[in-house]
Amino acid sequence: MIIKQETESKPIDQFPDGSTVRIIHLNAGKGALSKLCALGLVPGTIVRVFINGKGPLKLRFRDTDLVIGRKFAEKILVRLVDDND
């Protein structure tokens, strides 16, 4: 999976349902950043994109389901990881 790991990080809303991704960077201002951190979305976290349709994304991480608006999701830069990562 070396090729995948070397690809540039992309906003999480660009990944389809069922993707497993790792947070690389939070491109957010202080308020949004603090909120994301408190919810457990810190860099390094493995997140499963559960539903990515037209509305908010449904994410699963750290044994929690979270729905997050698309504007907010754009701030979360992630990289695809293998399921066995």
Binding site: V67, G69, K75
Partner: peptide, 11 residues
Amino acid sequence: AATPFVMELPP
């Protein structure tokens, strides 16, 4: 501008 939406979805 709109504020981001984020919410926990309990089981």
